[in-house]
Amino acid sequence: MNTVEHLKKGARDLAWFVKGIMGEDAYDKYKAHHESRHPSGGGEAPPVMTEREFWRDQTDRQDTNPQGRCC
């Protein structure tokens, strides 16, 4: 790998890390999980939520199951 490739990889890793910390990768994780449980053509797989549906569902779940923040 040359310097440019190194820098590119570094930037990609940083973006991955920041997104992970901010929780932005939640939908990707959900989709990956869904696919691993219900590989395509698996017959009666439950429908996968769209991105919009997923984020709504996520905050709605937080409404009924709040998480504390420390002092």
Partner: peptide
């Protein structure tokens, strides 16, 4: 919620 769901960063 309405414009760009999930674009947290």
């Amino acid at each position: 919620r309405f414009f760009r769901p999930g674009k947290v960063t």
